[in-house]
């Protein structure tokens, strides 16, 4: 768990142009999380900060796949990410049906072991709920 803390950061604190994968949401209420999910954010998604405003990193232009989404710091702080270069598995993983997938690394996982175990990082998302 200590290792996870070390790797995990909020999207707001992510450096510009450093791709990262979403590993969970730190929302105060369910409503905020639904809004973020409906516009397209999900665990395992690759995000990258492309542009930031002049003052206090506000607003931020976040690339989510091919889409650019403008958001404010308070919204970016709700999204937890792990920089993609810290992943052992940097390629987009192949998903097999009927297998639960680790949100961070996209690798097969089980309920006993909350993460795929590929790198020893505990998963967030489902495990956190």
């Amino acid at each position: 768990m200590t290792k996870q803390k070390h790797l995990e950061t909020s999207l707001f604190n992510l450096e510009k142009h450093r791709p990262a994968r979403i590993c969970g949401f730190k929302t105060i209420n369910e409503h905020d999380q639904i809004r973020l999910r409906e516009i397209g954010f999900a665990e395992g998604d690759l995000v990258e900060i492309l542009h930031v405003g002049l003052f206090g990193r506000s607003p931020l232009n976040v690339k989510l796949h091919g889409t650019a989404i403008a958001m404010r710091p308070n919204e970016a702080k709700m999204i937890d990410v792990i920089p993609a270069d810290l992943h052992r598995d940097k390629e987009e993983p192949v998903i097999h049906a009927n297998v639960d997938i680790c949100d961070v690394h996209g690798l097969p996982t089980s309920h006993e072991k909350p993460c795929c175990g590929a790198c020893g990082v505990a998963t967030s998302g489902a495990a956190r709920e």
């Binding site: 809004r35 973020l36 516009i39 607003p59 232009n61 091919g66 889409t67 650019a68 989404i69 403008a70 958001m71 404010r72 308070n74 919204e75």
Partner: peptide, 11 residues
């Protein structure tokens, strides 16, 4: 409260 933006910028 703090207000939001969350706006998709089209191609």
């Amino acid at each position: 409260t703090m207000s939001s933006l969350l706006l998709e910028m089209p191609s």
